[in-house]
Amino acid sequence: MRTSRLIALAVRNQFLEWAGTWWFTVSLVVNYAVGPLIGLVVWSAVLPGDEVIVRYFVALTAVHLLTASFEDYTFAESVYDGTVGHQLLEPQPVVLGPAGANLAIRLWLGLFGLPLTVTVALVTGASYRWQAVLLALPSLVLAALLRFLWTWLLALTAFWTERVHAIVGFGNILVFVFGGIAAPLGDLPGSWQTAAALLPFHAMLGLPAGIAAGMLSGSGTAVALQAGWCVVLTAGAMAVWRSGVRRYTAVGA
């Protein structure tokens, strides 16, 4: 299929492009690992001896790395410097470029970050049932898609405003609070817990980690909800994209 070939090509190119800057990849790994690791330290102090919490935050570190999204850099900057104009003229959907870059960066983050996660798991003695990890995989794939769609949606605001980094920063705060980094879903106060379970942010991050840690029972509905959010955000991103391009081609660059 042509689309998958084009994505594979974009991934390959971006993967090679990133090979020259291993130190930057390491910075990103640290950047993405530090939030969940602080959560691990804090919540281990709050609930000493709780093995599930340790398992959850270690898994969360891996999920955070594997769902990392930087469309405010890979895409929004191309709106600001005008190169998106070239991309619009190419005979392929523009989203393929950022999507390829996204996958390539995640590959690199996984390559450097998973050994780090395994080391943390060994040091903290976190151990997983393989059934739980397998069960978490479909939800991880959906989380990865959802996080990309969310960041992409926010990055599209670059067509209207220059403050895209701040907007994506705002989105990341929501992911931080409701996604399960600040606290595991079960430790949020009552009404927050309900809100967090329904909003898409927990589905981007905490859900697969919780399943892998064996924390969540009846996660079937949560995964269904996750898939539902994927559909909603895809539709949203398509609509915003269309009106963004209309604006771009009307205003020019």
């Binding site: 130190w23 930057f24 910075s27 640290v30 950047n31 530090v34 939030g35 602080i38």
Partner: peptide, 17 residues
């Protein structure tokens, strides 16, 4: 080519607690 300022920013977060 080494730009580690963002690393500084990440590690900086550890001072929050």
């Amino acid at each position: 080519r080494l730009d580690l300022h963002s690393l500084f920013g990440s590690v900086w977060q550890l001072a929050r607690y």
